[in-house]
Amino acid sequence: MAKTEGWQVPDPLALGNRHALPDALRVLAEAYPRADWQEHVHFGEMIRFWMQRHAMFRQLLDLLKSDAQAALSRQMEASAHAGRLSHFGGTLLNELHGHHQIEDGHYFPRLIKLDARLERGFDLLEKDHEAMDGLLHAMAEGANSVLRGAEVGPFLDRLSGFERSLNRHLADEEDIVVPVVLHTGFAG
Rank of each mutant, 00 (worst) to 15 (best):
R120T: 06
G16P: 02
A82H: 07
L72S: 10
F122T: 08
A29N: 15
R164M: 15
F57G: 01
E151W: 04
S66L: 12
F57N: 00
I102L: 02
L125G: 03
E30G: 13
A68M: 08
N94T: 01
A80E: 15
A70N: 10
R74H: 07
Q101S: 02
F162K: 01
R164I: 14
D104P: 01
R164Q: 15
L96P: 00
A31L: 13
R18K: 14
L135T: 03
E119K: 15
A70G: 08
D133S: 12
E126A: 11
A24L: 10
L63G: 08
A68G: 08
H54L: 11
L60C: 10
E45P: 06
S86L: 12
H40G: 05
G121I: 02
K65Q: 15
L166D: 02
N17S: 05
E174L: 08
D67M: 12
G16F: 02
A82N: 08
R168V: 07
D123N: 11
L61T: 04
H54G: 07
W50Q: 15
L28I: 08
D23I: 09
V178N: 08
H42L: 04
E126F: 00
F162T: 01
L61P: 01
R26I: 02
R148N: 13
Q69F: 11
H169T: 01
K127C: 07
V181K: 02
H183L: 10
L166V: 06
R18V: 14
A131P: 04
P33E: 06
E141T: 14
R120W: 00
L13W: 12
G105K: 01
V178D: 07
D128S: 03
E30W: 12
N144I: 00
P33C: 09
L111V: 10
T184F: 13
A116T: 13
L118W: 03
A20E: 11
F88C: 04
G44H: 14
R74K: 10
L111F: 10
E163N: 09
H19N: 11
T184P: 13
Y32D: 06
H42E: 10
G185L: 12
A71R: 14
H54F: 09
L111R: 09
V9D: 02
E77V: 00
R74F: 08
E126D: 00
G90E: 00
Q52T: 12
M139A: 12
G149I: 12
Y107H: 08
P12H: 11
A171Q: 11
R48P: 00
I176K: 06
E174G: 11
R26D: 04
H137S: 12
R74P: 01
P154G: 07
V27M: 08
E151R: 14
M76P: 06
Q8L: 14
E103D: 02
D172E: 15
G98M: 05
D104A: 01
R34D: 13
R58V: 07
R84C: 04
Q69P: 05
E103Q: 05
H99L: 01
A150W: 12
L61F: 04
L85C: 03
S66E: 14
I112Q: 14
G142P: 09
E141S: 13
A14I: 04
S160D: 07
Y107I: 09
E174H: 09
E77I: 00
A143F: 09
L28N: 02
H54N: 11
D157S: 15
A82R: 05
L182I: 01
H42D: 09
